[in-house]
Amino acid sequence: MNRIFITGIGTGVGKTIVSACVTAALQADYWKPVQSGSEEGTDTQTVRSLVPEGITVCHQEAYVLKEPASPHLAARLEHVTIQTTEIIRQANQIQPVNRPLVIEGAGGLLVPLTDDVLTLDLIKDLHAGVIIAAQNYLGSINHSLLTAKVLQHAGVPVIGWIFGGDYHTNEEDVVRLSGYPMIGRIPFAQEVNRAFVQQQAQLLTAPLKALLA
């Protein structure tokens, strides 16, 4: 499975840090096809600053939108037309043969990219396997299991869960009830830098390669 899509159970659950760690663990390339809220900086810039230099290529986004909103709304406000066919074309163009591509989504599965296309639809069109990024908060079990059910219903292959932040036993319940394996967890850190990402990547490498074999 050479395309790995990182989705989250919601906004602000650590998708970008998970993406950086998975990218480093697999010595993969990274791509965020649609970025909104770009005036605060882009996730591509963040990942580029965190992954090992000289190994990963962080590809340019297909669409960059200033408004910090869902892609379909930001695009509407900025008079931009997002075309998922163009995203697929670029994915086919940028991905090297026999090298994984880590693709970071915007928000969760049911975030609209256009008036008619959801992030879930794009994942299916990309033929990507999914890693779900999750954190513990009040309501996170519901959000986690809803995400899992949507993926199951859509028939999308799921690689597993990566949890972030402080440990909670809810993680074990989510793994058990979803039926998807836990790949690992990324603890809270006062400073997230290249050394931290490399340390976490080393811990994720073995379980990721076993699940992707």
Rank of each mutant, 00 (worst) to 15 (best):
N2W: 05
N2I: 01
R3F: 00
I6L: 07
I6M: 08
T7W: 07
I9T: 15
I9Y: 08
I9N: 06
T11D: 14
T11R: 12
T11C: 13
G12Q: 07
V13E: 08
G14W: 07
G14P: 01
T16E: 04
I17K: 03
V22L: 00
A24R: 08
Q27G: 13
V34H: 05
Q35W: 03
S38C: 15
D43W: 00
D43M: 05
T44H: 05
V47E: 03
V47D: 02
R48F: 01
R48C: 01
S49Y: 07
L50N: 11
L50R: 03
P52H: 10
P52S: 06
P52V: 02
E53W: 08
G54S: 09
V57Q: 13
C58Q: 00
C58E: 00
E61Q: 13
Y63I: 03
E67W: 05
E67G: 01
P68F: 02
P71W: 03
H72P: 04
L73A: 12
A74Y: 13
L77R: 15
E78W: 06
T81W: 02
T85Q: 12
T85V: 08
T85S: 13
T85I: 05
I87N: 08
I88M: 13
R89F: 05
A91C: 10
N92S: 09
P96I: 09
N98W: 05
L101P: 08
L101W: 12
V102D: 00
I103G: 02
E104C: 00
G105H: 09
A106W: 04
A106S: 13
L109M: 10
L110R: 12
P112E: 07
L113V: 04
L113A: 06
T114P: 07
T114N: 11
T114D: 11
D116A: 15
V117K: 11
T119E: 06
L120G: 13
D121W: 05
I123R: 11
D125V: 02
L126P: 12
H127V: 02
H127L: 13
A128P: 11
G129K: 12
G129V: 08
A133F: 10
A133C: 15
A133V: 07
L138K: 02
G139S: 04
N142A: 12
H143I: 03
S144Y: 10
T147R: 03
T147N: 07
A148K: 03
Q152F: 01
G155I: 04
G155L: 03
I159H: 10
I159Q: 02
G160F: 09
I162N: 08
F163P: 02
F163M: 04
D166S: 09
Y167A: 14
N170Y: 15
E171K: 13
V175W: 08
L177Q: 15
L177D: 14
G179R: 09
I183P: 11
I183A: 09
F188T: 06
Q190M: 14
E191V: 12
E191D: 03
R194S: 11
V197G: 04
Q198I: 08
Q199K: 15
A201H: 05
L203M: 12
T205Q: 15
A206Y: 08
A206T: 13
L208N: 04
L212H: 06
